[in-house]
């Protein structure tokens, strides 16, 4: 079956390419998922199932878009997981607040973690994809199935919310 822009064999991801994808992006995907879920076990399961799906669908993955495809799969797996478990929000506040006192050296980082945890799932994913992975608005929109303007608006709101939290924290300190 030939596809536009190349033959079927050109599109098919080989095991070598797949393993390269593991080497290059596994940590990135894991961080992204872990920052959202804040549960190592759950994050590991999500990443593993995302890679399984990548392997299953490798015939439809273009060579240069394996990372974005992987993040898309992982993001949707994470959303499914969040819908099933509904336990993230309850834990977040206490764990992240505790981190502030545990790490007095990197107070700013800890405060940022807390502020990140206070965002909703979409905002958090936007910030993480932007800051961690450096995706453009367009790429983020493709991963999260949002328009470019939505990504821009939501992300800017998330930034202002983070800033507001940090400023208020500075005022308290």
């Amino acid at each position: 079956m030939a596809a536009s822009g190349g033959s079927f064999d050109e599109w098919l991801m080989t095991e070598k390419e797949y393993n390269e994808c593991v080497t290059l992006y596994a940590d990135n995907v894991y961080r992204f998922i872990l920052k959202n879920l804040r549960q190592e076990e759950d994050a590991r399961d999500v990443v593993q199932s995302a890679y399984e799906k990548l392997w299953k669908n490798r015939s439809g993955v273009e060579a240069g878009k394996s990372k974005s495809y992987l993040f898309t799969i992982a993001y949707h797996q994470m959303i499914d997981h969040l819908r099933k478990t509904k336990r993230v929000e309850l834990r977040a506040e206490f764990r992240e607040e505790a981190k502030i006192s545990d790490r007095p050296v990197s107070q700013l980082k800890a405060a940022l973690e807390v502020a990140l945890a206070r965002l909703n799932d979409t905002q958090r994913s936007l910030v993480l994809l932007k800051d961690y992975e450096g995706y453009s608005y367009t790429e983020i929109g493709q991963i999260m199935e949002l328009t470019e303007s939505q990504v821009k608006v939501y992300l800017h709101r998330a930034r202002l919310q983070l800033k507001s939290y940090l400023v208020s924290l500075e005022n308290l300190i």
Binding site: A26, D27, N28, V29, Y30, R31, L34, E40, R44, V47, L108, L112, A115, L116, V127, L128, D131, Y132, R159, L162, K163, L166, V167
Partner: peptide, 16 residues
Amino acid sequence: ALLHCRLLPDEELVFP
């Protein structure tokens, strides 16, 4: 304040 809002990837976090 906005510059502080940028997240830096935690390199310590690796897939186990």
